[in-house]
Design a protein around this nucleic acid. Structure first.
Length: 886
RNA sequence: GGGUUGGUGGUCUAGUCUGGUUAUGACACCUCCUUGACAUGGAGGAGGCCGGCAGUUCAAAUCUGCCCCAACCCA
């Protein structure tokens, strides 16, 4: 009977079969908890690398952004796990908030209004759980080195406790307040929302020119016209504004206007916030049409006329229109204005409307009592905190700075929703004094739990009202560093503690560039206020994956590429190799053909490993002395290791990837392996081969975790035989330079000679293993003669002490412009001209070049000679050698 | 409307901060070749006025200004 693929021991037989092998390792890594974080309080924070990854919103399926973002994080996690020590790569789900409520409503085709609160919450948990399970499965299929024991959901009780602790702490620090003020309101979701939750959307609408009569005994004129896109707000009109420099309309200032149809009278006021360019330059101010109306309401102490309620239904202030939706009222009012002769013009326009990002409903502005976190007074601190972090790429800091500089509102954190984390607050029924829950009893739900006091400390009343609001999503998701570090209140010592203080501040915060302004910002605000520290040493901003035409993927465009489909087609390792191709922070397109480069690399690595396995024993002893060619390879390897380590420490994944690929493919496979084939009996070569191979596997491991693990287990790991715990390559040590010294120049020259001989064979249509009678080389190839002879099948290799008999003539003269320029300035043009026209003289005796009346010293120019060889055989030239093939 | 970032062979990209005359690599294309692993491999080749215009400079993909295009953020 066949052994199931998943249980087959690793070996190098046959071709590489990613489909079976990748699934096998993903399963074992999870089963054997290879990536479990094992640090404790005692662990040195300097050798602990902790990532705080923003938990994905539970809103559906895995997209390319998740794949790309997590792959980048995984590069960092895997490199640091090998290089530094303990790594925490946690995972969370953001299943708390409006997004998950809407998901539930859509999934079950229900409305939250039709359910009792607890019942709806239960449904949310169920729906989210299903989505989370399938998401987890897909994440594990990406092979990320996440510690699956270290996960959280933002709705779980532990996180609820942390959220409520955070609320109480900020309240005690005087950083939170409750205030009745205008706030952005979503009539569909029936909750206040914050500014960052709105976005602009283009909508078709009409501009309506409406006549207002001027009231009073002796008006300067009969009427004036205002333009509005929202006639349904006319009953809410509280004043009319004119710009103070608007000469045409100055006569109106100080007069009173009569609102058409509704008949109430409002003052006409001068204010420089009026946009004179728009319409007639006269505008009405309502409760509330836009943000400017709010500013006017505050600046001029205007009354409130609330004509639209929380469900976008007209109130009794709208008279006959009461009970209609804003849409219906708009049409009806326009008709009635026309009938009454007030409508002067009506034209179609397209304009931007603020809508709620979760449901695309145009938002309203409503006065309501809400909780705020005060942030405007600490802008300088938050800017300073952001500047303390390392930004990768650095330029992304600008976005953060501009965001903070442009802040105009404190952070509204209360939401009138069902499923969320409740505010741990009750209010005195008589005097409205807030009663905070006690820290020990958190999490609490004021709707079902009792307040911690029997009587109001202010007025003695014994009646309390529970706060019904829940926290804004970001009030919780801004706490992820504290959640991951196990932040809590210790009642005995009366201070905040962390289960894992060694993790905080976190080493890395990865995220897309679109959420710098709210998610990252809010996280810094919260953690900074709680701990007085910046929560992250560094932040890594990933770009977006675009479609093959460089356009943003979106459902409406239908150009979304689902990661599942890509993973079905291509090895995860190949996808990872592609993901490493873009500079961090840059958007880049997904093109299927780019994945073939990764596939080819996997095959190359596999095949090279097979060859090495045939050429040398797995663990050869180190010889006393290495031969030149082998020492050369290991010295080059040292330098690659050093470069790679530097790149990875700087999160330069693309640079590291390209450096490693070039060295592995060109230098190692194309050059060294071919030579090694002819030297398999040499203990020196055997040792170098194996050392390089082990090192390559380790260097590739962060990028190609599956194939390197398979080869590692097949060849080097002992866990298979000893039946002990898995000795994964991913928990092995990152290679360090071994200090090999070699004549790198001679090695380079030798490789040039080999290249030249290959080209010679290729051009003469000879097989590469064709024998060459005799070859003479003039150039520094000390110690590499045998290598050249063997790999190129040269019968007789001669190293010439003197250049071969050649006649030379000057082909060109290269000038060293970087020294020539500063020295001769504008004379350079003449010098160039002199050389071009042949009006120059080379004085070999003095070692100078005379041109354009100047004498250029030896180090300023280089004479390129055209060599022609008149002896036997054919001459081949390389950068630093001359080769004669006999 | 304001700001940020980017525009390099057919495609993707390195190089731009720190200016130096031969602009990197991959994919695709063309020609040739069975090196003891890999033909899904190897050796070669063709393909670029570095978005446009002006300026600074002996010298500009690189610095400056303006313009065009795209993405993102903010109005």
């Amino acid at each position: 009977m066949d052994t199931p693929e998943s249980e087959r021991a690793a070996n190098l037989e046959g071709g590489y079969d990613p489909e079976a092998i990748e699934a096998k390792w993903q399963e074992r890594w999870v089963d054997e908890e290879v990536y479990a974080y094992e640090g404790t309080e005692e662990t040195d924070p300097n050798t602990t690398y902790a990532i705080d990854t923003p938990p994905p919103t539970v809103s559906g399926s895995l997209h390319m952004g998740h794949l790309y973002g997590h792959t980048l994080q995984d590069f960092a996690a895997r490199f640091n796990r090998m290089h530094d020590g303990e790594v925490l790569f946690p995972f969370g789900y953001d299943d708390n908030g409006i997004a998950s409520e809407r998901l539930t409503e859509e999934d079950l085709d229900i409305r939250h209004q039709d359910y009792e609160r607890r019942e709806f919450q239960r449904l949310c948990r169920e729906v989210c759980e299903e989505y989370e399970n399938s998401f987890t499965e897909k994440m594990q299929g990406l092979g990320c080195s996440i510690d699956w024991n270290h996960t959280y959901k933002t709705i779980e009780p532990r996180v609820q406790r942390i959220s409520q602790l955070s609320f109480l702490d900020l309240y005690e620090k005087g950083r939170e307040y409750r205030k009745k003020a205008p706030a952005i309101w979503c009539p569909e979701c029936e909750t206040a929302i914050s500014q960052v939750e709105t976005e602009d959307d283009e909508r078709h609408s009409h501009f309506n020119d409406v006549a207002f009569e001027v009231a009073g005994e002796d008006p300067p004129r009969e009427e004036f016209v205002i333009s509005t896109t929202r006639p349904e707000l006319i009953p809410a009109c509280v004043s009319v504004f004119v710009h103070p420099e608007d000469e045409d309309n100055q006569d109106l200032v100080g007069e009173t206007a009569r609102v058409p149809i509704f008949g109430h009278e409002v003052p006409i006021i001068a204010d420089e916030r009026v946009d004179m360019e728009k319409g007639s330059g006269i505008v009405m101010c309502c409760t509330f049409g836009d943000q400017k109306d709010i500013e006017w309401y505050q600046a001029h102490d205007l009354p409130l006329r609330v004509a639209i309620d929380e469900t976008a239904t007209m109130t009794d202030l709208a008279g006959d229109y009461e009970g209609r939706s804003t849409e219906e009222a708009r049409e009806a009012i326009v008709e009635d204005l026309e009938d009454a002769g007030y409508l002067r013009d009506r034209r179609e326009i397209v304009h931007d409307v603020g809508v709620h990002e979760r449901c695309d409903t145009p938002v309203e502005y409503r006065v309501s009592k809400q909780w705020y976190v005060e942030i405007l007074d600490h802008k300088a601190e938050y800017l300073e905190a952001g500047a303390e972090m390392d930004w990768y790429p650095e330029k992304m800091f600008t976005r953060y700075r501009h965001w903070i500089e442009g802040l105009e509102w404190d952070w509204l954190i209360s939401r009138q929703r069902d499923s969320g984390i409740p505010f741990p607050v009750w209010y005195c029924a008589d005097c409205d004094h807030p009663i905070m829950a006690e820290r020990e009893s958190l999490p609490v739900d004021p709707l079902s739990d009792e307040p911690p006091v029997d009587a109001c400390p202010e007025c003695g009343s014994e009646e309390f009202e529970a706060e019904e609001d829940v926290f804004d999503t970001w009030a919780t998701s801004s706490l992820t560093p504290l959640i991951n570090a196990g932040w809590d209140w210790d009642a005995e010592s009366e201070e905040f503690t962390m289960d894992h203080p060694e993790l905080y501040p976190f080493d890395l915060r990865p995220q897309g560039h679109d959420i710098i302004s709210f998610w990252l910002f809010h996280t810094i605000v919260k953690c900074y206020e709680h701990t007085g520290e910046v929560p992250f040493d560094a932040t890594l901003i990933n770009g977006h994956v675009l479609d093959e035409n460089r356009e943003k993927m979106s459902k409406s465009r239908g150009n979304v590429v689902a990661p599942d489909e890509v993973i079905d087609e291509y090895p995860v390792d190949a996808i990872r190799f592609w993901a490493a191709s873009a500079a961090v922070g840059d958007d880049f397109p997904y093109q299927e053909k780019d994945l073939t480069a990764g596939e080819k690399l996997l095959r190359k690595l596999w095949n090279a490993s097979k060859l090495i396995d045939n050429l040398a024993p797995a663990d050869p002893a180190e010889p006393n002395e290495l031969e030149a060619i082998d020492r050369w390879l290991l010295a080059e390897l040292d330098s690659a290791v050093e470069d790679l380590t530097n790149h990875l420490e700087e999160y330069e994944f693309a640079k590291a990837r390209n450096r490693l690929r070039t060295f592995f493919w060109n230098t190692f496979c194309d050059d060294y392996l071919e030579i090694a084939k002819t030297r398999e009996d040499s203990p020196s070569t055997q040792y170098a081969l194996r050392t390089a191979h082990r090192t390559f596997l380790q260097l590739w491991a962060p990028y190609l975790p599956h194939v390197t693990e398979e080869i590692w287990q097949a060849v080097y790991a002992r866990s298979e035989e000893s039946n002990s715990d898995l000795e994964s390559i991913h928990t092995d040590d990152w290679p360090a330079p071994q200090g090999y010294e070699a004549d790198l120049a001679a090695g380079e020259t030798a490789m040039e000679v080999i290249s030249a001989l290959r080209r010679y064979k290729s051009e003469n249509q000879l097989p590469l293993n064709a024998d060459l009678e005799s070859v003479a080389v003039h150039g520094e190839i000390d110690g590499f003669e045998d290598a050249i002879r063997d790999v190129m099948h040269v019968a007789d290799l001669e190293v010439l002490a003197e250049p071969p008999e050649i006649t030379t003539e000057v082909a060109s003269i290269d000038l060293d412009y970087s020294t020539l320029g500063p020295k001769y300035g504008s004379k350079v043009g003449e010098i160039d001209g002199g050389i071009e026209s042949g009006e120059y003289e080379i004085d070999d005796e003095a070692g100078v070049l005379r041109v354009a009346g100047e004498e250029l010293a030896e180090d300023l120019f280089e004479v390129e000679l055209e060599r022609s060889y008149s002896g036997d055989g054919e001459m081949l030239e390389t950068e630093s050698a001359v080769v004669i093939v006999g």
